[in-house]
Design a protein around this nucleic acid. Sequence first.
DNA 1: TTAAGTGCAAAATCTTTGCAAATGT
DNA 2: ACATTTGCAAAGATTTTGCACTTAA
Lengths: 146, 146
Amino acid sequence: MQNPTLKERNKISEDLLKRHKLKITSPRLRVLSTISEKETATSQPELEKILGDTVDRVTLYRVLNVFEEKGILHKILDLNGTATYALCSEYCPEHIHQEEHVHFTCSSCNSIYCLNDVQIPEIVTPLGFKIQSVAINAVGTCNKCP
Amino acid sequence: MQNPTLKERNKISEDLLKRHKLKITSPRLRVLSTISEKETATSQPELEKILGDTVDRVTLYRVLNVFEEKGILHKILDLNGTATYALCSEYCPEHIHQEEHVHFTCSSCNSIYCLNDVQIPEIVTPLGFKIQSVAINAVGTCNKCP
DNA sequence: TTAAGTGCAAAATCTTTGCAAATGT
DNA sequence: ACATTTGCAAAGATTTTGCACTTAA
């Protein structure tokens, strides 16, 4: 199931909304469609620009918040602290439920990739520090940039 | 040189400013003093609250920016994307010039620690992804929280 | 039908900019 | 003395809130 068509993506999005008991509305479908179109994470300003007049800015805030709460999207802060969103992995065709994964930020094109296949290494902390989760962001140049 | 007194901290701060060819001013000393008092990183809102009327909010923005540019402070974004600042390691008594280090965020007290002694593991990225730096933030409970 | 979701207006924050006055060297 | 730095005012940007209207189920 590579490169699903718009119709296929919409079907998947509708299922996703149903599964989380959210109503199927135009703003939500547009947001999901936009985000799932790209391989890399999508920043909120980017979404605003793409969606333009079709989705109100306030609605976008609210849609992104519900999606994050429900675990449909996860938020990544880019190097400037800008909120950037990517689909959670349960949405992936492979159904890998690996919420923790390494992010890769390309300093050339600013894209953020979720590297689901990269192993998260063990971090050894000082005595008394108990780790619940580890966020790793590798910065460099991606495979599309020279 | 543990727990330096206020006077000692001010001396260190003045040297630090001189070394970076910055004028020694009251706002700059206050900011450095406040940040160096704590073991953990200090958020900008926290600084605003502590400095109160003694330093203008706009001045604080500018002071933090120069300090970051000059490599006196480094900025860490906390889990909410709030800018949080810690002294760069050259400032440490040991003179370890290790700019990359693991951060630890306590989800209980929200403190951010710079773990200079924790080894940064190797991250193996997919073909074509070239890593320049790796940011690691471990989230959990610190040694002061239950 | 009706609870949930949206859009608009407006408030509350956060961040930047311009400029005159103050200050460190 | 003079370039830097500060503080204030004001603009710009971002995020949140309240409420009436719309829409999916």
